[in-house]
Amino acid sequence: MPEAEAGTLVLDCDELEELAGALALGAALPQEVAAAQAHLDGCPRSHTDVYELATVARLLAEAPEPVEPPARLRARILATAREDTAPQDAPSGIRYPVSGGGGPVPGTARAPAPARSSLPRRPVFFLLAAAAALAALALGLWNLQLRGELDQRQERLAAQQRFIDAFAGGGRSVAFAPAPGQEALHGAVVRRAQGPALAVFTALPRPAGSDVYQLWAIRGSTPQDLGVFVPDARGHHIATLPDLTGVDAVAVTLERERVPAPTTAPILTAPL
């Protein structure tokens, strides 16, 4: 199988067809999956077989003889859901092929270190009614608070940008655009006058548990793994990036562990 520049695997039509069974069974190697996706994205042939075999493979999930789970499992799931107050993840508009990976559902952005609310849960209609009644009173106060928060945020962002500019050393930087709901996150891809490019993060909360941030170079719709990291206690992290020639964007996802393909939508994206 030919290797394109920068070690990227490229599959031709025959190689893709040869790999179709392994791809469908989830038994191909990560670089082959990425190459297959890239091929399918750009190939004028329909490669119907590849899709059909994947459909057949999905049906294998139905093959095991049904086994009645213990009754306590149902109760346990419902009790855990009842106690679960973690906010639902906000959908992101950014899409690229993502793996299930046992993690979050495709197309989602997992909020970093989600804060658990201590508020008691109430019916939605109650919350809506209460919100409507309080809205007029709250609006004025909220406006004042928001203005103050915006000032503080702009000051903080300016300080963070100065930090990033110091790395650029005459080069240029491209700020990461945060996904909706992730506006507090901040960082930039710094293409320095000399030396390798950097990804500089100045405000990333430490992920919950053993979660990690993962960096990706996006070419077209194909993400390439650039490694994982956890920022320091101040939310800072600096990563050295490879040659970005031909890279359309650098993105960051939050993952349970290093994964060969993203399982969540990016929380930060820097278009290059």
Partner: peptide, 10 residues
């Protein structure tokens, strides 16, 4: 790192 990708990776 999981070496095997899920069925719906593509």
């Amino acid at each position: 790192v999981a070496r095997v990708l899920p069925v719906d990776t593509l």
